[in-house]
Design a protein around this nucleic acid. Structure first.
Lengths: 177, 177
DNA sequence: ATTAGTGCAAAGCGTTTGCATCCAA
DNA sequence: TTGGATGCAAACGCTTTGCACTAAT
């Protein structure tokens, strides 16, 4: 039932090819400054957590990580900052039916889509965008935005999964909102 | 920033061209029977509500509608049945960042994607699927599923919106998860 | 008659809010 | 110095659960 795939343009395997690690953290901090936000220890830590993480983080994940480096944090501060950073583009939000809302450092510099592992949530980016096609859409909608994601099982998970998590169909059905 | 669109295959404007109204309700009820579920008044009503609705319904919406026809319903029964019907494919779930989880009768008969109005949530279906392309994806993921949705403002909303809801960019950013 | 489905109430969980305190600018 | 950021606690909304009762098969 699910179609073919093959070759087309795409770029980096990980960070997104234009920015990674330290650079990404700086980017986030600079966003904060530009918007007139203060750079607090918590926010510095927050930025760093996301630059060190490949996959998605739930607010809870972030909270746990924050506590390691900055024991006093409170949950609501984490939420506040996640929300603010998301709203102005520093983070990308995804909602997983199982797992709820999660966050990931976003690439500000170019348009792309995601290939997400439904097991470990490791995410790769690729440049192909279906909107580049001459789509003949029904109705007379004024197009504003779109969403295109591909879900699968990454190479390193393909081995492990075979044992425990088997019923891939159901897994997927529920993981994708 | 957001790309072009033009002509390509597609089908019906509404139901999805293969099933509508009564037929859809029967389909849902038959699903229940096949699975060995009992057909209760509440479930019959639930099925009917979705066949009469074009857009998405939140659990709350459904609850309100249910109460009109069947005053005694409880919220948790609505949830239980929404969940069950979703799990076995009778309903499609979408999560809107603002508005939360919503449901819509699903088309079992053919693969398609959605064009969703970010104002009224009226949804049209179209047959074009980006996975038909020969995509050259990074990594070695075993592809399991995908998601492709286009968000815009439908014709009838384009007039109304201009007055109140203006800042389309932000609207969208937050509506799409 | 059996057993799934319902309604009720209460709990659970993730997220948000008000407010006094703290601290980056 | 001072207004934004934080931590705390409480509230909030949505969803789930346990249990006795009801009703479809």
């Amino acid at each position: 039932m699910y179609p073919s795939y093959g070759r087309i343009s795409l770029d980096a395997e990980e960070g997104n090819g234009l920015m990674k690690g330290e650079e990404m953290a700086k980017e986030m901090l600079s966003i904060m400054m530009r918007k007139g936000w203060r750079i607090t220890d918590q926010r510095r830590t927050l930025a760093q957590i996301f630059t060190e993480t490949e996959g998605y983080l739930s607010p809870k994940d972030v909270y746990e990580s924050m506590r390691l480096k900055y024991p006093g944090v409170s949950f609501d501060t984490v939420y506040r900052n996640l929300r603010m950073l998301s709203e102005m583009g520093g983070l990308e939000q995804f909602y997983f039916l199982e797992g709820g809302l999660k966050f990931k450092a976003s690439c500000q510099s170019h348009h792309h889509h995601h290939l997400i592992c439904i097991n470990c949530e490791k995410t790769l980016t690729f440049d192909y965008c279906p909107m580049e096609q001459k789509l003949d859409l029904p109705g007379n909608y004024k197009i504003i935005n779109h969403r295109f994601e591909i879900y699968g099982i990454c190479e390193s998970c393909q081995g492990e999964i075979k044992n425990d998590k088997v019923d891939t169909d159901e897994e997927t059905e529920s993981l994708i909102d």
